[in-house]
């Protein structure tokens, strides 16, 4: 039962990846693309957590934590660039 649920969850998160990727490709403005990247990294955290449950290994949380932190820093840097035209003034 658990493995079926994990398989369905893999499918749903994969579909979510495709949606975010479409927005990244077609998004008309820069904030749309940044938002798509933000969604992609949150989805990656979800996928890594699912992989951890699927393989029964607690090793993947460090990767998930790193991706969460780096993704946030990336989003903030890109937003600062759009707002001020510069990242570190």
């Amino acid at each position: 039962m658990l493995s079926t649920a994990v398989s369905i969850a893999f499918l749903l998160v994969g579909a979510a990846f495709v949606m975010a990727l479409l927005r990244l490709l077609y998004g008309p403005d820069q904030p749309d693309r940044i938002l798509a990247l933000d969604t992609l990294y949150v989805n990656t955290v979800a996928l890594l957590v699912l992989l951890g449950i699927h393989l029964g290994s607690a090793l993947y949380f460090e990767a998930a934590l790193l991706i969460a932190m780096m993704g946030f820093v990336g989003t903030v840097a890109l937003c600062k660039y759009l707002l001020r035209g510069d990242i570190i003034e």
Partner: peptide, 23 residues
Amino acid sequence: EVILSALILLGALFTFIGSLGLA
């Protein structure tokens, strides 16, 4: 196992709905 499956399905469904909204 039922609780775990429900949580996993709910989480994946909400992740999907969020990205659907984005698209």
